[in-house]
């Protein structure tokens, strides 16, 4: 093939998969090291910080729970941006990015749900309350699983990427509506009486570890994300090579 396919010329050189892989190879060890350092500092501070006068030791769950919840939303934003990349610029790396982010998002959301539940037991006396936040995070979790299921159901990765891109965007538009409606529903059915950790009332003693943990989680996400993207690219390369092998065997016969 002397003539490169037109599709290739359209993609800017900077973002072609080979360049991307080279970039990942350089970046990921640093990113991973940074993540480990941040976690070391963040975890140390989390455990060294004073107990809450009301919640005692259980307040430390917050240092995992809040960053995970924050990432569950950021991850969807990353996917929505990738979906735009897929639909508007038809960029194959955007496909890969969205696909790689979905399981991560589901994972972080699950962590947020589980830690929230663990936190809820001592605080509220029950594993689960239909609190507005919990409910909307749970719905988000369902949406992640739906997206993963959709991706799995389609054989052709390009078409799967386009289909899920549309769904991601529809979901993205809907998330504020879902959040709003769940809050409405919640105030109607049961007034929110639980103590909330958010708002500016938080003590700096808790804030610092929380911020560092949030950054650490974000770095963890990016590390995992680029590694997952790398794996996905390699997986597709293998698929291409396999088809080539099958074809050349067919020609030889």
């Amino acid at each position: 093939m002397s003539e490169p396919s037109l599709a290739i010329r359209k993609f800017s050189d900077l973002a072609n998969p080979t360049r991307f892989l080279a970039l990942v190879a350089i970046v990921w060890p640093w990113l991973a090291a940074l993540t480990v350092c941040l976690f070391a500092v963040g975890l140390y501070l989390s455990f060294a910080s004073v107990d809450d006068y009301q919640q005692g030791q259980t307040v430390r769950i917050m240092y995992v729970h809040v960053p995970a919840a924050w990432l569950s939303m950021m991850c969807y934003t990353v996917m929505a941006l990738s979906a735009l990349g897929t639909l508007v610029w038809r960029h194959p790396l955007a496909d890969v990015s969205a696909k790689a982010a979905a399981p991560l998002g589901a994972g972080f959301t699950l962590v947020a749900l589980i830690t929230g539940s663990l936190w809820g037991k001592p605080m509220w006396g029950t594993w689960w309350v239909w609190d507005a936040r919990l409910t909307s995070v749970f719905v988000l979790f369902l949406m992640y699983l739906g997206l993963i299921a959709l991706n799995r159901a389609m054989d052709d990765p390009t078409r799967a990427a386009k289909a899920s891109a549309i769904l991601i965007l529809v979901g993205f538009v809907n998330i504020p509506i879902i959040k709003f409606s769940v809050e409405w529903w919640n105030t109607l059915h049961q007034p929110a009486s639980v103590m909330r950790m958010d708002g500016p009332t938080i003590d700096p003693a808790f804030l610092w570890p929380l911020l560092i943990m949030a950054v650490a989680f974000t770095m963890l996400f990016f590390t995992l994300h680029i590694l997952a993207m790398r794996n996905e690219i390699l997986r597709r390369r293998i698929a291409v090579l396999r088809r080539h092998a099958a074809r050349s065997a067919g020609e030889a016969a």
């Binding site: 719905v139 739906g146 299921a149 959709l150 159901a153 389609m154 289909a163 549309i166 879902i178 409606s181």
Partner: peptide, 23 residues
């Protein structure tokens, strides 16, 4: 529309649509 090409799209459509229909 998203699941149109899938042979067993029926269940998937419900799974995808139900969370969006919550509001």
């Amino acid at each position: 529309g998203i699941a149109v090409a899938l042979p067993r799209g029926g269940l998937l459509v419900s799974i995808l649509v139900l969370p969006l229909a919550i509001p």
